[in-house]
Design a binder for these strands. Structure first.
Lengths: 265, 265
DNA sequence: CGTAAGTTTGAGACATTTCAAGGTCGGTGG
DNA sequence: CCACCGACCTTGAAATGTCTCAAACTTACG
């Protein structure tokens, strides 16, 4: 099923597709320097010369349709990716069929950074909507980092931040109740949208209840119940995948302490 | 309370302390090339010349007593560490007081690799027994990696492996029941001990039930109950912190599918 | 209009936590 | 030496949060 905006265009999450003339595969080098994600992506914090170097190795664009994968578990590992526009999920799986979504990636996010110890993908990246990524040859980037200290530092930061993020998610899953996890998830998403220049109060989810559940280690029914609960509390307005955060502070409170049961009068 | 071996010395986990003459702080450069952890640690897969370069920047040794920390959340981030001998736990915490143990590190493990995005520690590393680490200045290592492709590759592998490990733990916590988690934990520990040349059937735990619980996102009571259960099933022999794996295959089965309730005849 | 996919809601089942009590071990001091 | 203490571990019973199963509903779409 194809997802369609049901409202007049509200500038939301994620970035709308660029004009059609840019949509062909192997677009000519458009450049990180002009990319709207520059402040988040691989050229973050670099000077013009350094950014140009990154630009040179990040020119390969790949478009994927909703539901298609960029890489799959078991694939050989050559590239890392930056989301140009769209959204991805990264799924982990075990032999016995347990599954989990390790992360969602928004425009400007870098992904595909695990599995270097075996040169084999251990996860699968799937587009949640029609999307485009910049593919960056890991060898080229490593070579570049070898020559350019600032770029090496940036790569380190990206890896290190990735570890930190996984750890926070782990802590979230391991120690929070479902309301708290959902609140956390929404606040995180909201913040990331804000960083990308969008409303942080008005979110259109690109993922299903089931995908949220798989990410936060719970069932889709529980996700649904929590959304309803938060809506009843007046913290959210929930209309299918369109979420409005009515009470940010309330949501933060829930994230920290769960919903306080109010005494029945 | 100081932990003491209660059995005739069985060569177990972790490495026994080196002879006393090596125990002073700032030991002269003893060298990764002669270190018994060489095959696991920062010189893994390097040739003699490269290993010597690593050796040059990894000469600083720090001893810590049981319960002391190597670094704490909020500290400035200068070094990464390799465990020379002993065991460490890495604890994460949130402002609201939720806690979790993100990892246990054994001899040869590298730790302290998160927080580079802000140059600030986001976790605390505490020794579970009297231990010693090699401190490696991150700046020196980065500089070295800049010149030596093989070392840069190794650093990448270490970071990437760290991400993979966190992901697997996340999957474990998110999708497994408590018996399965404990079985997984023991199998992982067993395998790591084997890699270090010790018995993989006979384990002396360096961590309390509570610490295992904090690591696997459950309560200490549940940990205790599962140990008892697995002992009743004949899979383990449990005597306080001394664990014998009697039935490896059985344990693997539990890790994959939990304990099957046998019908009451 | 019917179907499929996604979502909501309820009721009962279940795993794990919480609370509480008792047990063991090793160390310490009378 | 023995009694006591604190830290740690074990076990039970009740409480609780989440899951499972089931049904009904919505929306998109042929």
């Amino acid at each position: 099923m194809k997802f369609r905006e049901r409202l007049p265009i509200t500038l939301l999450f994620p970035l709308p597709p660029p004009p059609a003339r840019l949509m062909s595969n192997n677009t000519p080098n458009l450049g990180c320097t002009t990319c709207r994600n520059g402040h988040l992506c691989l050229s973050r914090g670099l000077n013009t010369r350094e950014a140009a170097l990154v630009e040179d190795i990040a020119h390969r664009k790949i478009r994927v349709k909703r539901g298609e994968s960029i890489f799959r578990s078991g694939d050989a590992l050559d590239d890392i990716y930056a989301v140009k526009y769209g959204t991805f999920k990264l799924t982990l799986g075990t032999a016995e069929g347990r599954e989990m979504i390790a992360a969602f990636y928004l425009s400007g996010d870098i992904f595909g950074t695990d599995g270097f110890e075996s040169d084999t993908r251990t996860s699968t990246a799937i587009a949640l909507e029609d999307s485009e990524v910049c593919a960056i040859s890991w060898n080229s980037l490593a070579e570049l980092a070898q020559r350019e200290g600032a770029i090496q530092q940036l790569v380190t930061q990206i890896f290190s931040a990735r570890i930190g993020r996984k750890q926070r998610l782990m802590l979230c899953i391991g120690s929070m109740r479902s309301e708290e996890r959902i609140a956390m998830f929404l606040l995180d998403l909201s913040e990331r949208l804000r960083e990308r220049g969008f409303s942080n109060r008005h979110i259109i989810l690109r993922m299903s209840r089931e995908e949220i559940a798989e990410h936060l280690a719970m069932t889709l029914e529980t996700v649904s119940r929590i959304f309803s609960l938060l809506a009843r509390e007046g913290i959210l307005r929930v209309d299918h995948r369109e979420i409005q955060i009515l009470d940010v502070q309330g949501l933060e409170t829930v994230a920290q302490a769960g919903v306080q049961k109010r005494p029945v009068l």
